Amino acid sequence: MISAILAMFIGGIGQAFEADGAGTVTGLGWAALFLSILGLVGSILVKNKPKAGGVLMLIAGIGGIISISFFYILAGALLIIPGLISLFSKQKSTSINA
């Protein structure tokens, strides 16, 4: 989220100085903020629904890297790695046989 806010801040400064493409940077910052929130939701869901949570974290990590690239590298890696782990790990069954 900090990276997304930083990208929006830089885009806002660019718009104040009427730089070309500054509006695009601000828009991509908003997209990264949305994707960060999506990653948080995925991390909450991963306890009860590991596949759905893993998919949400992968979408958030890859989408964030695409949207604001350099600023999202650390957050993207920290979302992609556990997303892959939750998708490919074998979960124990918690059902009780009577």
Rank of each mutant, 00 (worst) to 15 (best):
S89H: 11
S93I: 05
T26I: 11
S89T: 13
P82N: 03
I37N: 12
A52W: 11
S3W: 09
G54R: 00
Y72T: 02
G63D: 01
I85R: 08
A4L: 02
I5E: 01
G61M: 02
G23F: 07
G29W: 00
I2Y: 14
V41S: 03
G12Q: 04
G54C: 07
I62P: 04
P82T: 00
L84A: 06
L78H: 06
L45C: 15
S69K: 14
E18Q: 13
S86P: 06
A77D: 09
G29H: 01
D20P: 07
L78K: 03
I10C: 04
D20I: 12
L56R: 00
I85W: 12
K51M: 14
Q15F: 11
S69N: 15
T24W: 07
P82K: 01
A52Q: 13
S86Y: 10
K90W: 10
G76K: 01
D20R: 10
I73P: 04
P50T: 13
F88K: 11
K92Q: 13
G11L: 01
G64K: 01
I81W: 12
A75Y: 08
S86L: 07
G54K: 00
V41Y: 07
A19C: 12
A77E: 09
G29Y: 00
S69C: 14
P50W: 04
G12Y: 00
L45E: 12
F71A: 11
I65E: 02
L33H: 01
I5W: 02
I5A: 08
I85Y: 12
A60F: 08
A16C: 13
I68Q: 02
G39I: 07
I81N: 08
S93V: 06
G42S: 09
A16S: 14
A16E: 14
V55F: 07
A16D: 12
G27Q: 06
G53P: 01
G14K: 00
S36I: 09
I81D: 07
L28K: 02
G14S: 06
A32I: 07
S3V: 06
I73V: 13
L58P: 02
F70Y: 15
G14F: 04
L40S: 13
A31K: 08
K51T: 15
P50C: 10
M57Y: 03
I59S: 08
I62L: 06
S3M: 09
G64H: 02
I44C: 14
K90E: 11
I80P: 03
G14I: 05
G14T: 07
S69T: 15
P82F: 01
I65Y: 00
S3H: 08
I65T: 04
G76P: 04
A4K: 00
I59Y: 09
F9E: 05
F34D: 10
V25P: 02
L78F: 13
Q91T: 15
S36M: 10
F88A: 06
I2G: 15
I62C: 04
E18Y: 11
F71W: 11
